[in-house]
Design a protein around this nucleic acid. Structure first.
Lengths: 237, 237
DNA sequence: TCAAAAGTGTTGGGGGTACACCCATGC
DNA sequence: GCATGGGTGTACCCCCAACACTTTTGA
């Protein structure tokens, strides 16, 4: 009880780990979060975050990566980040389960729609997350705050957008994630100043979701961003 | 393996949890981190963060709070924050141990020195953390980044300082935590603008550690800070 | 023709940064 | 007397915020 030394008393090897994944997606207009609905008793009908157990020998991110791969068809660990451990998890009849929550940003077109129907998975809009099972609302809340911080410091927004996007889409994404509105002219000036946008010198045909026909198309300057990351940069929104 | 549903296969109740605590302190001049040295085989001589196991029924922060109480003689959970779970922990012969790391900010005078000698605990300066056992260097690194973010957004620095402090102490703390230097005049202007400092209209007697005799003494305006927190505020350093 | 989104410049104010000298204290 | 830290004001520049109208498109 009063030990601060190694080796201490014996560890208590009776805890299980689960992972929940907060997936942020962008459908062209709106920021969304992926939820699943249980189709089996006793939780039938309940909404929750995509979740799995970890085996005791698994690396902490493994379940999140497996889920990601299952939903998207490929494995890209660079998109997944740990949030933190949540201890107030549902009481499993078998014992203590601690949830190590993760989040990831995705462009929705990558999705394997077949997976979702089978598991009754749905996107809900960022502002309309309903009551979830267990402590998953807390996790979503924490993930939103993390996203906010990330969007402020890094141009992560580009991860959510399709390769070619309009400034209207970009602004709408920033406004949702940061919870405020921007003046259109000032927003554009600020973004251009970063020199991270490449003007594709083409206009949208209006077929892609969320793109207004006639809007100028842009893409993200990845090489420049990589160089800026090496040099250290200031990007505060 | 491909389940995304509750209930899933059975959880694996064979993991143990430990907690490590990164304690940042300020001795009047320097930012420091508390380390322990093992005095028993097989880890004898190794340096590590103060750490404990969690019992399976414990709330996640409990061990961190107990350690804090043991070292300081009182329990103040508002000072402790979870960092995240670290999975690459030392291999315990008995099985998998996941470390849920926490950090806290303290003013060193609160410390119960008797506790330390018994457990061979020492403050090391922020910039001179040696090689630690297990993955504790990773945890320290993560904690430093978290501290940096917190210092930028909240006036947490005041938690580390004694009730009465000089502007020199405050600036030195900010410079260490943020890893850069500030112009003295600009630093003062910026701090005064926040109106979070109260001029005590007294000068330091030079007896308190790190205080230059003759320096003006200040204290932190807690009421104002509480009000600002409610209203939401912008404090970016 | 009407509604919704795109596109486009200027101005004023505030905040950040750069910069130098004198005073008080302790050794 | 010398070194160390304390204390003070100004000028410039950049960035941010506020602000309105015309054009294009689709319904």
């Amino acid at each position: 009880m009063t030990m601060l030394q190694f080796p201490q008393e014996e560890p208590d090897f009776q805890v299980a780990l689960s992972t929940s994944l907060v997936l942020f997606g962008f459908d062209g207009s709106d920021l969304q979060i992926l939820l699943a609905r249980s189709n089996r008793p006793p939780y039938e009908g309940a909404l929750f975050l995509p979740s799995r157990y970890l085996n005791k020998e698994d690396e902490l991110m493994l379940s999140a990566r497996r889920m990601f791969e299952q939903l998207f068809g490929y494995d890209d660990p660079s998109m997944i980040e740990q949030l933190q451990a949540f201890g107030q998890v549902f009481r499993h009849p078998g014992g203590r389960v601690v949830n190590i929550a993760h989040y990831a940003l995705v462009y929705k077109d990558d999705f394997q729609a077949s997976q979702w129907e089978e598991h009754d998975m749905h996107w809900v809009t960022y502002h309309q997350v309903p009551d979830l099972a267990f402590d998953h609302n807390d996790i979503v809340q924490y993930a939103k705050e993390r996203l906010k911080r990330r969007v402020k410091r890094r141009p992560v927004g580009f991860r959510l957008l399709p390769d070619e996007f309009t400034l209207g889409q970009l602004q709408s994404l920033y406004e949702t994630a940061l919870g405020k509105t921007f003046d259109k002219r000032n927003f554009r000036k600020k973004l251009f100043k970063t020199t991270l946008l490449i003007d594709l010198e083409r206009k949208a045909d209006g077929l892609a979701p969320g793109q207004h026909k006639g809007s100028q198309l842009f893409t993200f300057n990845r090489e420049k961003y990589e160089k800026m990351k090496l040099e250290g940069y200031d990007f505060i929104f």
